[in-house]
Design a protein around this nucleic acid. Structure first.
Lengths: 204, 204
DNA sequence: ACATATACTTAACGTTGTTAACCGTGTGAT
DNA sequence: ATCACACGGTTAACAACGTTAAGTATATGT
């Protein structure tokens, strides 16, 4: 009696349509500009149908967000093998930044929108794992003596904060709008480099 | 015939009431939660009155924002005299961070909301001057040989980006929500320190 | 005393997220 | 075969939002 399975499959299919349409609109419009009605129109259903699959707009975008964390994790995992942990960190930074600039609206929602997660929940599993990559790299850099000894967790958070800062700015302003002249084309690279440099064990 | 002046004064008075009420609500609610009707109610006028003083909601919040850049500049100018430029930079970072944490919703609007400035306009005068302080400090640090030689503008932007990153995170998430355990209590301090450390000329 | 300008209000419009009520169709039981 | 029903979908409506057109009153200048 595969009728239940079929129903489940059909249901999932509509859910996917909604998510895809929402992502597509969301990618080029941003959270508040995308209306439930617009999403509904895109998939040729009535707006109410969306509420059969998602509690509300927030829940819908949360699902999107969940998937995006997975994508981010995927992007970061593509970074080359950790022969040199410092170079690994740099590559992670580059990939992270590239992700943010490729999907500014998603980045905004994932990392710049408050009240998203209930207190216990933290960033979401793939988000945690993504950060875990950086954490591993930092631990390895310390172990090899490339980084100064210190609390790896804090150091990873420092690096993440710094990179997040430049991505957040680039996602918000055009480089021409930066104070006192346009931002350097490779500002992200510089931030990344400077964050790493600060933790480098001094060669003497 | 001071009637025109009086009118102008009364007009300015209402304008101030609107701005103050808006700021008060805005401080604890954030942009989209604060409604024109709520502001109107707070000052015991009809919603329409606001439109006599501001083109629309965006213009109102822009005015608020303009004032806030002034406040930020004021806060930064309180930092001690630049005897040691590196310490000055650190103090600027602290003051900047304190401002952001004291007024998260304002910070959000000033630095995390896109489409705010027309292309030519850049950050706004006081915003420019605030960044100018950092730029001056970096220039001085380079001149004294405390920082490595390099493009001061880019270096200042790197430092600003990094600090902005941690403030943006702290303004968006509670520390408990940070990945892999709560953030170090002094994460902002650490980011600041690490940013500076990266530019320090190596002592040998 | 009258006309006018000005600050303000009332009432409405169009759009938003969301929900209540309904409808039709395919399913499972009788 | 027929019937009851669950389920996915729609229509129509709600309240709240930003915003505006039209109207009102008061105080000014003639």
């Amino acid at each position: 009696m595969g009728v239940l399975e079929r129903r489940e499959r059909e249901r999932e299919e509509v859910r996917r349509k909604i998510l895809d349409a929402a992502r597509s609109l969301f990618t080029r419009e941003g959270y508040e500009k995308v209306t439930m009605r617009a999403i509904a129109e895109a998939i040729e259903y009535s707006p109410t149908t969306i509420y059969n699959h998602f509690r509300d707009k927030d829940a819908l975008v949360d699902s999107l967000c969940e998937e995006d964390f997975g994508r981010l994790l995927g992007a970061l995992q593509k970074s080359p093998a950790p022969t040199d942990p410092v170079e690994w960190i740099r590559e992670l930074g580059r990939a992270y930044c590239a992700f943010g600039r490729a999907y500014p609206n998603h980045y905004r929602f994932m990392f710049m929108t408050p009240g998203k997660f209930p207190d216990d929940h933290e960033l979401s599993m793939p988000g945690q794992r993504a950060f875990g990559l950086l954490l591993d790299a930092v631990r390895e850099a310390i172990r090899q003596g490339a980084f100064v000894a210190g609390d790896a967790l804090t150091m990873a958070q420092v690096l993440w904060s710094s990179i997040h800062g430049v991505v957040a700015l680039l996602v918000t302003y055009k480089p021409e709008q930066f104070p006192h002249g346009p931002a350097a084309a490779d500002l992200a690279e510089q931030v990344c480099a400077n964050g790493i440099r600060g933790f480098l064990a001094r060669a003497e």
